[in-house]
Computed example of a mutant assay.
Amino acid sequence: MIFGTLFRASLPTGIVDFVMDSYDVRHAMAYPPSDTLDTYNGIVITGSAASAYEDVEWINRLVSWVADLSVQRPHIKIIGICFGHQIVARALGGECVSNNGNWEIAISEVTLTNLGQRVFGTQSIVC
């Protein structure tokens, strides 16, 4: 998985290690088994060519799953990337609507926490 490779490449040796499991929520409707969820520290929901506001079964199920996860296991961190952050927003009661078919791209400076500064070796990053 590309994000596992990118995350691992960004880590200085010895600070943190991690394992990433991937699940195909779109085609296979696969999710981590509920009896193993407590072994996870975080969940990453990546991008998709789909629109997060669509009323389709796999998207609605993902929104519901994230909503349940945030209530039942609040200790598990949830990270959304593009499509993923829109799913998280919907799951937490936010609204996600069409942008008239336009994509938005921007550059933002992010100030890092102490751990983030150790991981990335800088006080802020531009992404």
Rank of each mutant, 00 (worst) to 15 (best):
G47K: 06
G47L: 08
S70F: 06
A106L: 10
T122W: 02
G84D: 03
Y23T: 12
I105C: 06
A52T: 01
L112D: 00
V97D: 04
S98A: 11
I87Y: 11
V71W: 03
Y31C: 09
S70W: 05
L62C: 05
I43R: 00
L115V: 06
D38T: 14
S64H: 15
V119L: 15
D68Q: 13
M1T: 14
Y23P: 06
K77V: 12
V66E: 05
A91H: 00
F3V: 07
F7H: 02
V56N: 12
P33A: 00
P33D: 01
T36D: 08
S51H: 10
V16Y: 06
R73M: 11
C127Y: 14
T36G: 06
V44T: 03
V97H: 07
F120R: 02
Y40S: 04
D21M: 08
M20D: 01
L115G: 02
K77H: 09
A50H: 07
G116T: 01
V88D: 02
G42D: 08
D55A: 10
F120H: 11
F83I: 10
M1I: 11
G116W: 00
N102S: 11
I78N: 05
V126M: 08
C96F: 02
D38R: 09
G47R: 08
E95Y: 02
V63Q: 01
A9Y: 09
L115S: 05
S108Y: 13
T36I: 03
Q72A: 15
S22T: 11
L6P: 00
G84H: 02
L62M: 10
A67D: 14
S70E: 13
P32D: 08
S51Y: 03
Q117M: 12
H75E: 15
A30Q: 12
T13C: 07
Q72D: 15
N99V: 04
Q72M: 14
G4Q: 13
E109D: 12
E109T: 13
A52D: 01
G84T: 03
I79K: 06
D21I: 04
G47M: 07
D35S: 07
W58D: 12
L11K: 06
V97M: 05
R8Y: 07
N60R: 15
N102V: 07
I125T: 03
A91K: 00
V16I: 13
G4K: 11
H27E: 10
Y23H: 14
S124Q: 09
I43A: 01
E57H: 12
V25F: 13
L37P: 00
V44H: 07
V56G: 09
N60Q: 14
I76Y: 03
S108E: 15
M20S: 05
A89M: 04
L92Y: 03
A30W: 02
P32H: 06
V19E: 15
T5M: 14
T5C: 09
N41V: 07
N100Q: 10
R8H: 13
I125C: 04
G80F: 04
S10N: 08
G94F: 07
D68A: 13
S51K: 13
T113N: 11
P33T: 00
V63I: 15
R118E: 09
S98D: 13
T111G: 06
N102E: 14
K77G: 06
I81E: 02
V126N: 14
F7A: 13
N100T: 09
S10R: 12
S10C: 09
T36F: 00
G121Q: 03
V56W: 04
H75V: 05
V66L: 08
M29W: 01
F83E: 07
V63K: 01
N114M: 05
I45V: 15
F3A: 04
D38L: 12
T13M: 03
D35I: 03
